[in-house]
Simulated assay, not measured.
Amino acid sequence: MLEIKLGEWRAIQTDALGRTSVGWQPGMSAAQYWLAGRAFWKFKADRAFAEREVRVVNAAGEVLVVATIDGLIRHEIGSRLLANRSMITR
């Protein structure tokens, strides 16, 4: 299983995904945790292709949400990135 670790919540200027904040904070819904973890992440291609699930965790390692991996995309500079994930559970 791949793992994405979120830092503490903070406001940002709108990013490429249209988000105005990143990170996590207590009390967010599973969907909000998922949106916070949905981004472009660089993984080793062979590992990313071998995995079927990804979990989003906070800095303490608490699992916030788990999702299936629907597919991978390649960034224009050649990095393979995780994308198109469907949320399973919190």
Score class of each variant (00 low, 15 high):
M87R: 13
L81V: 11
T68H: 14
R55G: 05
V63I: 14
S86A: 12
V57R: 09
L64E: 03
G18P: 14
L6Q: 03
M1I: 05
A30I: 13
W34F: 15
P26M: 12
V66L: 10
W24Y: 14
R52W: 00
K42E: 12
Q13D: 11
V54K: 08
V63H: 08
G23W: 13
F40D: 07
M87F: 08
A45N: 01
K5Q: 15
P26A: 10
A11F: 03
L6T: 02
A60H: 09
P26T: 09
R90F: 04
A31M: 12
H75K: 09
N58S: 04
E3G: 00
F49P: 00
T89F: 12
G23E: 09
Y33A: 14
V57D: 11
E3R: 10
E62C: 01
A45M: 03
Q32P: 02
A83G: 08
V63M: 13
V63T: 15
F49I: 11
Q25C: 00
I69M: 04
T68M: 05
L17N: 08
L72V: 00
L2D: 07
S79F: 11
R10V: 04
S86K: 15
R74F: 06
V66F: 06
I12Q: 07
R10T: 00
N84I: 02
L64T: 08
G61N: 11
F43W: 11
G23K: 07
F40T: 08
Y33D: 03
W41I: 02
G27M: 13
A67E: 06
S29R: 09
L35M: 13
R10P: 02
M1S: 10
V56K: 05
A67Q: 09
K42G: 05
V54M: 08
T68F: 06
N58E: 05
A83Y: 10
E62H: 11
A36D: 07
R74E: 11
A48E: 05
K5C: 07
Q32L: 06
G37Q: 06
